[in-house]
Amino acid sequence: MTSFLGLLFDGLAYGTLLFLISVGLSVTLGLMGFINLAHGVFAMAGGYLLVVLMGAAGLPFLAALPLIFVVVAAASLVLERTLYRPLYKSTHLDQVLLTVGIIFVAIAGATYIWGPGQQPVSIPEWLQGQFSLAGVDLSRYRLFLMAIGAAITLGLVFGLERTRFGARVRASVERQRTAAAMGIHVERVFQITFALGSGLAGLGGALGVDVLSLDPHFPLKYLVYFLLIVVVGGPGSIMGTLLAALLLGVADTAGKYYIPETGAFMIYVVMIVLLLVAPHGLLGRKK
């Protein structure tokens, strides 16, 4: 029982990270139908940025996080302008090839600079260690992760439901042509959400350096996870993405604990089955 609670806790923290990283991809896909396999690169960039900022620059952990968000978001805008935009109307195959190319360059670059090994970061002392709740030892850091995740989810949902910009995003996801006809500049909306989503991925990557273990193959290693979450959640749906990410986080953690010999096998089986049963996502609507 105690181990079950512990697993649930770890799984939810893990799922929170996956959510932070995937939510941007979900919006990109829902909004533009652009298949961005390189989304994990932004998360990896966030991770390495944290290593650099805390290491060489000597910045404190909490100060580094917002900076990472901003830097990754800005960098993603440059990529969006130069590489992604020309391919919005192109075939999915072209989009796949372009983004696989970006992944390769990122892997090679990261290996060149930081070497192939895992990168450690030292999280501040007040986040280290365990605390006890109802007889179960829980990690402080993971609680911190969940708190951040909850705050950001609330922020996103509030932003999407209550602000003018959010209304534009929703309109653009649901009826792109109508939105354009209503005078919404869909590409601009997309650009901003793309930057926000990439920034969040960077943040997720930074927060997850320890939990997800950062190495140059990160974007490829977690590619299936991100795609799975987006497809299961239904592209463009924030709550769907959250639900899918938490489910996957818990399932993966539990799977590794109870049936370690199957490895990632189960995840792939689940993915294929889900794709067949619910091709539009669990919470997604048919378009």
Partner: peptide, 16 residues
């Protein structure tokens, strides 16, 4: 790694 890098560049350029 060199190879992977150039492969990536090739892909990015080739799609356009």
């Amino acid at each position: 790694e060199y190879w992977l890098f150039w492969l990536g560049i090739l892909l990015i350029v080739a799609t356009r």
